[in-house]
Amino acid sequence: MGAHHDHDPHEAAPPAGRALRLGIGGPVGSGKTALTAALCRALRDEYALAVVTNDIYTTEDADFLRRAAVLPDDRITAVRTGCCPHTAIRDDISANLDAVEDLQARHGRLDLVLVESGGDNLTALFSRGLADLQIFVLDAAGGDDVPRKGGPGVAQADLLVINKTDLAPLAGSDVARMERDALRVRGGKPVALTSLRERPDAPEVAAWVRGALRRARGAAAAAP
């Protein structure tokens, strides 16, 4: 985990009585679904969870999560995005809001809903109307200049995950430089280095989510 991970000026608490909504975005193949599965496995015994997947092709991501049995079937919903994954999480969030509401209606109280974006480019960003917090996932082997270039997802996400660090040496990527660049463009907001292949439980990301859930509960309890 990078520096200053307790400092987050954008930390948002959900309105009292509803689940914390955590967006997980990032380019195609960076490990969004693997991270979603990891968080479900790590947190499902502590919190009431549900997942909404946004897949530009099929319900493949939702099917993967079901096959991996990280959550019961009826806690995973797939949304189609009409060839526009970024539209569905940013400009027009209605299908995702409907899916979240349906999960909430079906399961009563939920603590956390993970909304996994379809794979997109570096300009993707979750609307604050959909996600209280968001994680952006990068592939360390996908080019070590990506954090330096920035973009809304890299710069503004509440947590940046640089995944596949095990592949970085093979792709000639300098992970230390990626982390350094990321911390700079993110104004000190946290960065996590992960290898979901080597550590499929993503302990540092799960710890960050636990912290966010504790703060959300604290904020809800303190609300008048």
């Binding site: 949304v79 995005t81 009409g82 526009c84 027009d92 969030i93 209605s94």
Partner: peptide
């Protein structure tokens, strides 16, 4: 078409 009412995901 920019009205945020879910139309982009339907092809009629």
């Amino acid at each position: 078409a920019r009205l945020p009412a879910g139309g982009h995901a339907h092809s009629g």
